[in-house]
């Protein structure tokens, strides 16, 4: 069973699979709900219902991520395609999975280049992006980088949780 942070991982992976080089994530944790928006510049094939299970452009047995998001959010999701970017939004109850922010963000920043994440909680917000981590040798895919990444995310968490 996916928690809310797992859904974000699915969404970012979906963007990366579409060839996106710019993936912008906004997670708003206000009011007991999680509102997530993932904007990317990937290339997609239009489908009548991209959230339907089995609806995929990625071949047989592939690409269940959007269906899982839809199911977990009980339909409270939307995919909007513009000329140069695609926006996936979903909303569900806050299950506390982003409280473990380091664990939630580590798989995303470990694997995907071009990712930036803004976390909002009530009136506070903080931002982290992969290029910042790269400059500080803090990509969490090796010893040292993992430690530096966690220190940065702990600081970010302090900013938004007070």
């Amino acid at each position: 069973m996916h928690d809310a942070s797992d859904l974000l991982l699915e969404a970012v992976a979906n963007s990366a699979e579409a060839g996106a080089t710019d993936i912008r994530v906004l997670v708003d944790l206000s009011g007991g709900m999680i509102n997530a928006r993932v904007t990317d510049n990937g290339s997609y094939t239009l489908l009548a219902d991209p959230f339907r299970d089995g609806s995929t452009t990625k071949g047989e047995g592939r690409g269940r991520g959007l269906a899982v998001i839809n199911e977990s959010c009980r339909g409270r999701c939307r995919l909007t395609r513009g000329e140069s970017e695609t926006v996936l939004e979903f909303r569900r109850e806050d299950d506390g999975s982003f409280n473990a922010l380091e664990e939630a963000l580590l798989p995303i920043f470990m694997a995907y280049e071009g990712v930036s994440v803004i976390i909002k909680r009530d009136a506070r917000e903080s931002r982290l992006d992969r290029s910042y981590l790269e400059k500080r040798d803090a990509v969490p895919d090796r010893a040292g980088g993992i430690r530096r990444f966690k220190a940065i995310v702990r600081g970010l968490k302090g900013e938004i949780y007070g």
């Binding site: 797992d6 991982l9 699915e10 798989p107 470990m110």
Partner: peptide, 10 residues
């Protein structure tokens, strides 16, 4: 992920 891969990775 459904089987717990995120915990394993972390």
């Amino acid at each position: 992920i459904n089987a717990g891969a995120k915990l394993v990775l972390n």
